[in-house]
């Protein structure tokens, strides 16, 4: 038992170190990488434009549900005028950064892991190395740099759409005065909340895209499978690990910032 525990700990420490080196190497390679802007724009498109529909849909439904649930709870205490406060703080502080990150992991992260896994399998990554091109700088760095900006932007969009959803269910369907709703939103959200929201979003972006890239990049090291199955396993692992890390990091950041 003790031996097993020791082996697991060593393995995990080694994997964490390897992951940290991978992320560090990717950022370092970006300094020397040529014509990086074009690839960052491409990553912007993958994480931004392609993920826009899912962010909009999940954002509006989250706002609608928050508006409904919040109204019935607050109405019991005769405080339905605080609906804007509840919806905005829930969204800005917690729900928007977490849910937006999970959606981006599901779409852009899984695509990244699968793409890198296939590129590893078909020797495209080895081909880059033989050309003297850093595969970290060429394939990974643009995605990580884009994530630092795209995740906060998508989160901001999620908040805006969510607030509008809350207003739809609260004001339009349940009769809360629209002016009261929006003035409560304005009064509730402070600069510190917005800052916290963006810090979370950028951290989630960096962590999740690094995990997805790392899993895809090392798909060939999968012990339990090879070929297409290894790509599938690494993609699944990327999504599961990223989702867990988002929730764990959310707790850690919240406990430090609140």
């Amino acid at each position: 038992m003790l031996k097993w525990l020791g082996r697991q700990t060593l393995q995990m420490t080694s994997a964490l170190g390897d992951f940290a080196l991978f992320t560090g190497k990717s950022f370092y390679s970006s300094v020397k990488s040529r014509r990086l802007t074009r690839r960052i724009v491409r990553a912007f498109y993958e994480q931004g434009a392609l993920c826009l529909p899912v962010i909009l849909i999940v954002g509006i439904f989250t706002g609608l549900v928050l508006g409904l649930q919040g109204y019935y709870v607050l109405n019991r205490f005769g405080s339905d005028g605080l609906l804007g406060t509840l919806v905005s703080l829930s969204l800005v502080r917690e729900m928007a950064p977490v849910l937006a990150a999970l959606m981006l992991v599901g779409q852009a992260g899984s695509a990244l892991a699968a793409e890198l896994g296939i590129q590893r399998n078909s020797e495209q990554i080895a081909a880059l190395e033989t050309m003297g091109v850093s595969s970290h700088g060429y394939l990974v760095a643009p995605r990580l740099l884009a994530a630092l900006l795209v995740f906060p932007l998508q989160t901001a969009l999620f908040v805006v759409v969510g607030l509008w959803g809350g207003s739809l269910s609260g004001s339009l369907l349940l009769g809360v005065d629209s002016g009261i709703y929006w003035s409560a939103v304005e009064r509730a959200v402070e600069a510190q909340d917005v800052r916290e929201c963006f810090i979370k979003a950028a951290t989630f972006g960096l962590l999740t895209m690094s995990i997805c890239a790392y899993q895809g990049f090392n798909a060939h090291l999968c012990h339990s499978a090879s070929g297409a199955r290894a790509v599938s396993a690494s993609t699944t692992r990327a999504v599961v690990l990223s989702s867990i890390v988002v929730l764990a990091a959310d707790y850690v950041i919240t406990s430090f910032l609140v």
Binding site: S33, R34, Q124, A126, T130, M131, G132, V133
Partner: peptide, 26 residues
């Protein structure tokens, strides 16, 4: 240079972009 058994061409790049890649990056 290295010519791989599987050719290792970038399937998301056109023929011209594939050939230009090593020049663009190095």
């Amino acid at each position: 240079s290295f010519l791989f058994q599987s050719n290792a061409l970038f399937d998301s790049l056109t023929a011209l972009e594939n050939v230009a890649l090593p020049l663009e990056q190095t």
